[in-house]
């Protein structure tokens, strides 16, 4: 008996040690990411700043190109999110509720193609299409391509979510005298909203962090998003200016964190379940 408890103790200790080791490996870059922006002599090694300084941020704020890029990121992400959120909701609702035959296949095929559209393999045709449409070097080009790439997955997630919501919600509304439109806006939409929120956050994060598409579709400096502008903190030789890069990266990540906190506070990442039955 004692031997056995000892055995368990040893095993637990080894497990905890291994877990700590792994956790540390993953935590180190994050710790660096928090400390480095406040360190005037930051390098790639981890060091606690002494003294704490905001000088890195001051330099970054003077870089108008980088600052404009943050705004561009916001425009492109917001535009993409609105388009993806709105279109995915309507499409997913239709796919979930209507008796169209083969609607499952449609969703899966779209899903399959979506990984191609936003993937690097399709960059040349996308460039040609956008170019032919005369949209090169516009926010709209970036927004449209992102929407096209993200919509199928967004529809897939939302359709699954809507499928899980009993039809009897809208049916009871319609029997009670609501038009299909009223039933959608009064009853279905509020119930679907947590799902839409998940899709919106996911789409925002995707667009916010994406480099390749805006890099290819945009020409002028004043339209570039932050994901591209971050390269302005590399020297001519291609080596990163670690201090500025760290500070800018922190600023760059703040909107995503803020969005997450806002959504969590306002909606909570939870689902209204149906009722027990």
């Amino acid at each position: 008996m004692r031997k056995r408890t000892q055995n368990i103790f040893v095993r637990r200790t080894i497990f905890a040690a291994a877990a700590t080791f792994l956790g540390t490996i993953f935590a180190l870059p994050l710790v660096w990411f928090i400390f480095a922006p406040f360190n005037a002599r930051a390098e790639l090694g981890l060091a606690i700043p002494s003294p704490f300084t905001l000088s890195n941020f001051a330099t970054v704020f003077q870089n108008t190109f980088a600052m404009q890029a943050l705004l561009n990121s916001l425009i492109q992400a917001a535009g993409g999110v609105v388009l993806v959120g709105g279109a995915a909701t309507l499409a997913a609702y239709a796919l979930s509720r209507s008796p169209i035959p083969g609607k499952g296949a449609v969703t899966y095929i779209l899903l399959l193609f979506s990984s191609v559209v936003s993937g690097s393999a399709a960059m040349v045709p996308i460039f040609l299409i956008i170019s032919a449409a005369g949209l090169i070097d516009t926010h709209l080009a970036v927004i449209l391509v992102f929407a096209g790439g993200l919509l199928p997955t967004a529809m897939f997630i939302l359709r699954d979510f809507i499928d899980a919501i009993p039809r009897s919600y809208e049916e009871s509304a319609m029997v009670a005298g609501a038009s299909p439109l009223q039933a959608f806006f009064d009853v279905a939409l509020p119930v679907i909203r947590p799902g839409i929120v998940v899709v919106v956050v996911w789409a925002f994060v995707n667009i916010w962090g994406s480099f390749l598409i805006p890099f290819i579709l945009l020409r002028s400096d004043k339209l570039m998003p932050a994901s591209v502008a971050i390269y302005s903190f590399y020297s001519e030789a291609g080596t990163p200016i670690v201090t500025l890069l760290a500070a800018y990266s922190l600023i760059y990540s703040l909107p995503v964190i803020a969005l997450y906190l806002f959504v969590n506070w306002k909606f909570g990442f939870r689902f209204f379940g149906g009722i027990k039955s």
Binding site: S168, M174, V191
Partner: peptide
């Protein structure tokens, strides 16, 4: 005719109360 125009009431098995 659409359900809304039939002048009917219905009670559902799962009650279908709007959760929000």
């Amino acid at each position: 005719l659409h359900p809304k125009d039939r002048g009917i009431s219905m009670v559902f098995q799962d009650y279908a109360l709007y959760p929000h």
